[in-house]
Amino acid sequence: MQNDVIMAGFGGQGILLIGKMLAYAGMREGKEVSWLPSYGPEMRGGTANCTVVISDRPVGSPVIRSPRAVVAMNLPSLDKFEPDVRPGGLLLYNSSLIDRRPARQDVTVIEVPANEIANSLGNPRGANMVALGAYLGATEAVSIDGVVEVVRETFAAKPGVIEVNITALRRGHEIGAAHTVGAGEA
């Protein structure tokens, strides 16, 4: 079984960070994982993205052209990666910053107002955690408890932000869980 996802957004939105947390939690669960930052022609246009693969068996290509899931945190990311989502896959988009509906009909689309939720929690920087939570809720790629543990470790130096981030993660998870999508075969 394999989950793979391209997460994309503006630099500074914490995209690479949530990708790393996802990969790290996967590794903790004994899965095979890889994390590949924006590298190659996709890097152009000021967007940051990373590809995370979580699998039961050794990861083959860490480069994924047709991912099973895309998390788009801004409009350029949606424009760029919407066509690449594998048919039957998952397209999760940040409706707070993206003012159009995705056009794809053959994938599961989840609308996540990530910035609005983060702001309402008094944690404007937590939109990335909302998105990660939503991805986890929809795919169960790794358990949310494992990710919570990673959050605690990641922010160990800044204990004040741990709980707000966990809250953001859980709120996202609730949204995602309403649209569960299965993982594909590796």
């Binding site: 790393k20 990969a23 590794m27 095979e32 994982v33 890889s34 994390w35 590949l36 930052p37 590298y39 990861v59 860490p62 480069v63």
Partner: peptide, 10 residues
């Protein structure tokens, strides 16, 4: 190559 250098794996 750059992939090996940039990629994260356990």
């Amino acid at each position: 190559d750059g992939l090996i250098g940039q990629m994260m794996e356990p």
